[in-house]
Design a protein around this nucleic acid. Structure first.
Lengths: 178, 178
DNA sequence: TTTTCCCCCAAACAAACGTTTATTGCAGTG
DNA sequence: CACTGCAATAAACGTTTGTTTGGGGGAAAA
């Protein structure tokens, strides 16, 4: 599964063959069918592991914190740290689900929705103006965070700083106050 | 090219075969090699057409507008409207570039960067606090906007409304002012 | 020692892939 | 009439794909 996650990240699902994964895992392609009944099942398993890991990290980060904005801030920072912290599973969540085969997509969307629910509850807890749709707010934040997988490179700001920054943007706004 | 863009959107690059595209265009697979030297070249051509169309739409939307925030608002609305307005080319820009083969990726990143530059100039024109990195701000906004391709379905708010809303979030913020 | 069970290998399968090749109407032009 | 270039067909190329099959080795249980 580690080999699969690594290659899925590097080249995507379609461009990664069972033989590629098997080679990196030190076995032959056919041997994998002892552990997983199909390639789709292997994909789903890595995707599930990714959401498990990131859910764990976020839940731990907000544990004991009570202020709603502070909770969202910690959650975003932990989200980003997990994405780029070296674990090859979680960042699969940033992959392009909408263009995979329908049968597989349905399963993956299901899994991702279960994680999004976590952010949903964090946002519902915020004291928001009446004319702000919490769902759109969540999608905006998750978009900012997850889109980072297409541009983030180590060296500049840390993932946590970036996550916190995005939350601060939403909370404080940018209109010139001078 | 229209057939290619349609199928690329529906199933992604790898899962779309030259035979699929040819069938939708009313010819045979080999016939396409008269018009495009390779599949990669066809991909690049559709991607380029997508950025051309969306650039045009955004430039026209901000034409004559002078207030910097108003310009960004119109740009975001036009961006979203073009993505979901029925043209099958522009939404390819929301695709997952980072996991395509390196040779192709380099070309696509180049093209997308040329479009991002447009938003860059819009953001540089804003009156921003000193501690806000304009680059991160642009990536946050483009993340919110482009991530919409993974969840947007017609029926709720229009694409323009969503784009404007995301800009308003950044400008005004959400901190409770009561 | 014999049996069982887990894990993997080796080889093959049909199908699908991007691409190449030779050929064919078909339009216009001198 | 002959010739030229365009745009497509039909068929095949070699390779790669996900998956299946039958078998074997080695450790643990009987």
């Amino acid at each position: 599964m580690a080999a699969a996650a690594h290659l899925f990240n590097q080249r995507g699902y379609d461009a990664t063959s069972m033989r590629d994964i098997a080679r990196e895992a030190g076995m032959l392609a056919g041997s994998m069918y002892y552990h997983f009944p199909s390639k789709d099942d292997l994909i789903i398993a890595t995707y599930e592991e990714g959401t498990r890991l990131i859910s764990e990290a976020v839940l731990e980060a907000i544990n004991g914190v009570t202020d709603p904005w502070e909770r969202l801030d910690r959650a975003a920072a932990a989200h980003m740290e997990t994405l780029f912290g070296g674990n090859n599973f979680s960042i699969l969540l940033c992959g392009d689900i909408s263009r995979t085969a329908p049968a597989l997509r349905i399963r993956l969307v299901e899994i991702r929705d279960s994680y999004d629910e976590l952010f949903n509850s964090l946002i519902e807890a915020l004291p928001l103006p009446d004319d702000v749709d919490p769902t759109l707010l969540r999608l905006s934040l998750l978009g900012s965070l997850n889109w980072s997988s297409s541009w983030y490179r180590p060296g500049g700001q840390t993932p946590e700083q970036i996550g916190s920054f995005f939350v601060r943007l939403l909370r404080d706004g940018l209109k010139d106050k001078s």
